[in-house]
Design a protein around this nucleic acid. Structure first.
Length: 663
DNA sequence: GCCACGAGCTGTAACCGTCC
DNA sequence: GGACGGTTACAGCTCGTGGC
């Protein structure tokens, strides 16, 4: 592509690839679309239209390059001038699996030496002819840019310019970062991760799911005791010992699920990998005592069985048939094809695929797996409703919220209030719903933030099983997408039981991990309740009885109602004002949100122009007056507010009233 | 096949700052 | 004070992941 294009030329990309970059650097081989940056960058644009007055003082970079990049940290977020986010390199590879790969030289820099970072070293591919696919991206992704005081965008230089930029020595010190603007939430999470990483780095981990350091392996082998005093080590079947006997060299020469090694001093040193296909398959009967599997399609029996479940943490899952055609064997032996979850669309002139109704509910505790087969018509047993509604019983699963929503759609009568419960208020409070749904992948992220990597997306049950149980979970399509409506065969029962029992075992592994490292886990942080509590706006009634639309705003802890037709402030403006009334200084708000102070000032004043200065208390108005300097554009653009405050707080207001108008 | 969710990319309105 | 152009924030889109 030409130098004007978005994609850098093969030549320039080749230069990047050929560079013998250090791990600290991050750009070694580009595989994704976005540009990743680890360090704050100076960017100096000398485009013809660039401002004549540079906003930052620059170290001398490559003078021939349209854009110069330095790894020197920015002195202040307020002084960094950047163009808007621009996509950079393109690649047919999926974005989320794009992993800047380390060059061999990267091994010179041990991961442990990288202060303030939490990402694992990039997957090493030495001697691998076929890069393995099965690694879950969340166990293998480099993290995004670390939290800095930078504004939202870091080093998103225009691709047009970058494409013609020769990689200078300085540019080599840049690393990969998403071109996506890191949100405030991202920043906060990154800060949390950094803090956690520091703490975790001090600890000695024996996760019980990765390779166990020799010293502790002998100690723990078959002797792990859970909090309830039960012996759990031997539950990890005979095949476990095979893994434990694997020599480090065996493991390191493999690829697949990556496990980071933590030395006795707690530092991350290197990683080893295990090919998932070498892992044994998960099966509930490998555990001791072997759980009983109870399959029923009788409501009474289901109630009895569910009543036998003990503890306040249960495995939970649902199965339903994807929409499609299914062959069903009739009582007389004949085979009939039926359509499930398909509806005829006149517009499309064909069937539209949907979903079948929930056909199977799985619950389990340590000793009992209950498979309640609802089939086509059976209603949810009352005991199951009781469990699902109870906030005190945690129901474990991956994308458990989706399961909850599915139940809510299929059986709304049990989890949503009747319409008679509607109040006259503008939102309808829902007292029921499905509570205590505990998202396992969020729990894993909380307990094992380094192992799961950055981000907040869901991690599949199979990936969790590989990592925390060292077992493969059968997720083959032939069973998964099968017909769950008809009476289940043994394969389906096993699949369903394994799914739900694996959730419980993963939870136990995570809990053990947290206990061993003195991490207090508040399970309520990982709940995904489904209570249908979506506010339903009801138009207010005007004096003449006609419905008028008003907007209710929550600012800080105060609620204010705007008049009809008044356009509410933008979310950013409301957020800034909300923070201000909570007592946060404006410069702090700007830093927290990664925006300029002037922008934060503008947001607050703009919001106040809408809600009115009276919204603020006397003290808040004084704070505003004192925190925003007189000679700012903020006051120029909000003169009305300026005059109000000046009159109130400026002792020389009278003599300067004309000046105020001139601002 | 569907659904839900998160991450990354992109267009654009709004904002900021300078010039006349 | 208006015009203008660069900068910033945000909404909406696409795509990939997970679930069945």
């Amino acid at each position: 592509m030409s130098s004007d294009g978005i994609i850098p030329s093969k030549k320039s990309k080749g230069i990047l690839e050929d560079l013998n970059l250090d791990l600290e650097v991050g750009i070694g081989k580009w595989e994704g679309k976005a540009v990743f940056t680890k360090e704050p960058l100076y960017i100096r644009s000398i485009r013809p239209n660039a401002p004549k007055t540079p906003k930052t003082s620059q170290p001398s970079g490559s003078s021939t390059s349209p854009i110069s990049i330095s790894s020197t940290p920015s002195p202040s977020p307020q002084t960094l001038s950047r163009p808007r986010a621009v996509p950079h390199f393109t690649s047919p590879l999926p974005r989320t699996t794009a992993i800047p790969t380390a060059t061999p030289s990267s091994s010179k820099t041990p991961f442990s030496s990288r202060r303030g970072t939490t990402e694992p070293p990039p997957t090493q591919t030495f001697g691998i002819t076929q890069p393995p696919k099965p690694i879950h991206p969340f166990f293998n992704r480099t993290r995004t840019a670390p939290p800095t005081s930078q504004p939202r965008y870091t080093a998103h230089y225009s691709s047009t310019e970058a494409s013609s930029t020769q990689p200078s020595q300085e540019s080599q010190t840049t690393s990969a970062s998403s071109s996506r603007a890191p949100s405030t939430l991202d920043h906060n999470r990154d800060r949390e991760l950094d803090l956690l990483a520091e703490e975790v780095g001090k600890l000695h981990f024996d996760y019980g799911y990765g390779r166990v350091p020799a010293s502790s392996a002998s100690q723990n082998k078959n002797n792990t005791i859970n909090s309830s005093g039960q012996r759990t080590g031997d539950a990890h079947d005979k095949s476990k010992s095979k893994i434990e006997e694997t020599t480090p060299s065996d493991v390191e020469s493999s690829t697949g699920v990556s496990f980071r090694q933590i030395s006795s001093n707690g530092k991350l040193q290197s990683k080893s990998t295990v090919i998932p296909s070498q892992l044994p398959m998960f099966h509930y009967d490998q555990y001791s005592p072997k759980p009983q599997i109870a399959y029923t399609s009788s409501t009474d029996e289901a109630n009895d069985l569910l009543g036998c479940l003990k503890g306040d943490v249960l495995g939970f899952d649902l199965e339903w048939p994807p929409g499609g055609k299914y062959k069903v064997t009739q009582p007389d032996g004949s085979v009939k094809t039926v359509r499930i979850g398909m509806t005829w669309s006149k517009e499309k002139g064909g069937y539209v695929f949907g979903q079948g109704r929930t056909a199977l509910m799985q619950f389990c505790d340590e000793r009992l797996v209950v498979l309640v087969h609802l089939g086509e018509k059976m209603d949810i047993p009352s005991k199951a409703i009781e469990i699902l509604r109870s906030p005190k019983i945690y129901k474990l699963g991956v994308q458990v919220r989706g399961d909850g929503q599915k139940l809510l759609r299929d059986f709304p009568q049990h989890f949503t209030p009747s319409t008679s419960a509607c109040s006259s208020s503008e939102t309808i409070p829902y007292e029921v719903g499905i509570k205590g749904l505990l998202e396992l992948s969020y729990l894993a992220r909380g307990v094992d933030p380094i192992g799961t990597g950055p981000g907040s997306t869901l991690i599949g049950l199979a990936a969790l099983s590989q990592r925390y149980l060292r077992k493969q979970l059968d997720k083959s399509n032939d069973v998964r997408k099968g017909n769950w409506v008809e009476v289940l065969d043994q394969k389906q029962k096993d699949y369903a039981a394994n799914d739900v029992y694996a959730s419980l075992q993963i939870y136990k592994s995570l809990r053990r991990m947290a206990q061993e490292n003195n991490f207090e886990v508040n399970l309520d942080r990982y709940l995904s309740n489904v209570d249908g509590s979506v506010p339903i706006p009801r138009p207010a009634t005007g004096d003449n009885g006609e419905a008028v639309m008003r907007t209710e705003l929550e600012i800080g802890e105060r609620i204010i109602t705007l008049g009809e037709g008044v356009k509410p402030p933008s979310p950013a403006q409301l957020g800034a004002l909300s923070d201000f009334v909570k007592g946060t200084r404006i410069d702090k708000i700007a830093t927290n949100k990664g925006i300029k102070v002037a922008t934060a000032e503008g947001y607050i004043c703009s919001a106040l122009q809408v809600v009115g200065a009276d919204f603020l208390t006397d003290e808040e108005r004084r704070r505003l007056w004192e925190e925003i300097p007189r000679d700012t554009y903020t006051w120029k653009r909000n003169r009305e507010l300026y005059n109000v405050l000046k009159k109130e707080f400026d002792s020389e207001a009278g003599s300067e009233s004309e000046t105020a108008n001139d601002v």
